[in-house]
Amino acid sequence: MTATYKNDFLKEVEANVEDGQWVKMCMQCGVCAGSCPLGPHWQHSPQKIFMMIRAGKREEVLTSDSMWMCTSCYNCIVRCPRKLPITHIMHGLANYAHRLGLAPKGQPTREIAKLFWDNIVKTGRVNELKFSLAMYFKDGFGQGVKNAMAMQGIGLGLMKAKRLNPMEMLGGHTCKDKGGIHKMIAKAREIEDRRKGLSGH
């Protein structure tokens, strides 16, 4: 049997992932893999992910939690000899896997991103108290209480410094035109979906 080289997945990434058209520019030098501070802790480095995309490993890439590990330190972008926007591609891949529902369930970065998004779109401002509590309790009530107890000192400190207001629990501060913000976000989503060819899905 002869193996044929298919680049369907590369084409899919180019069409759907932010900055995906850059993937083919990678020359597999390994500088990003060796420069990423999280390197030793990821399953697949950016270098490897780019090769996997070209090798058509769709499932393995999209279900991987590797791109969710990127902390946006930009070390790779600064050093890449080909100037690939690696960080952005990592986030683009994560976002694409999320949209397709393939991203790993319970992956902490993904959970936090979701909580943050839900929190900020409600009022146009981040409600830090609610966001922190949502984070503490994301793994169930028992774990939430434990987390909250562990973070108590920091919470009190923030309150003293007026960085955290307990009254935020009751509604909290909002933007002047909450309805306008909601409309704006809906419109942005519509444009983005159209750009990605997702309208009607």
Binding site: C29, G30, V31, A33, G34, S35, G39, Q47, R79, P81
Partner: peptide
């Protein structure tokens, strides 16, 4: 392509890091 070079201070040997 080597990502970075450190130095083993005990013997002055350069240590090459990469993937």
């Amino acid at each position: 392509k080597v990502a970075r070079i450190a130095e083993n201070e005990a013997n002055g040997n350069p240590v090459l890091h990469g993937v």
